[in-house]
Amino acid sequence: MEQHPTHTHTEHQDTGTKEIWRTFWILLGLTIVELAIGFYMYKAGLQPGFFKNFLKGLIVVLMLMKAFYIVAYFMHLKAEINNLIMTIVVPLLLFVWFIIAFLMEGSSYNSLRNSLDRNHNEKSTAPVSPEMKGSKETPSKVTNEKPAHTE
């Protein structure tokens, strides 16, 4: 707890501040690209398909890059020694398995339920009548009365 900084370099401060602003511009740039892709997907009215999934994957890659810059430069994890970095990063690799396993589980549940539960399939693929759309009372009532799903 009581470790004292042994040295304070004034020339270090300038490079440090420069690095902070450089990281800021990178984060801002990545965010703008993300938003541009998101806006394009909306404006172009893309239908679900390979291209849309590709763009979404691109957004996820940009998101991970932003996360890297925040953790490495704002939280200074890059400046820590390797032992510390490994105790933080290695456990987080569990997320790779979590994401794959749970999303596959979700889509498997979806296809099983669609094929086995005809009532669910019909209900969830029938369009809402236009007067219900946008009104405040009816849809929320309907969703409240619906029996809760098992999820």
Binding site: K123, S124, T125, A126, P127, V128, M132, K133, G134, S135, K136, E137, P139, S140, V142, T143, N144, K146, H149, E151
Partner: peptide, 22 residues
């Protein structure tokens, strides 16, 4: 104000079908 809250979902799905409160 638009009617959204826990357990209330006034929005419909992107394809026009009934959405759940999820």
């Amino acid at each position: 104000h638009e009617g959204a809250w826990w357990g209330m979902n006034p929005f419909s799905n992107a394809d026009g079908t009934q959405s759940t409160t999820n």
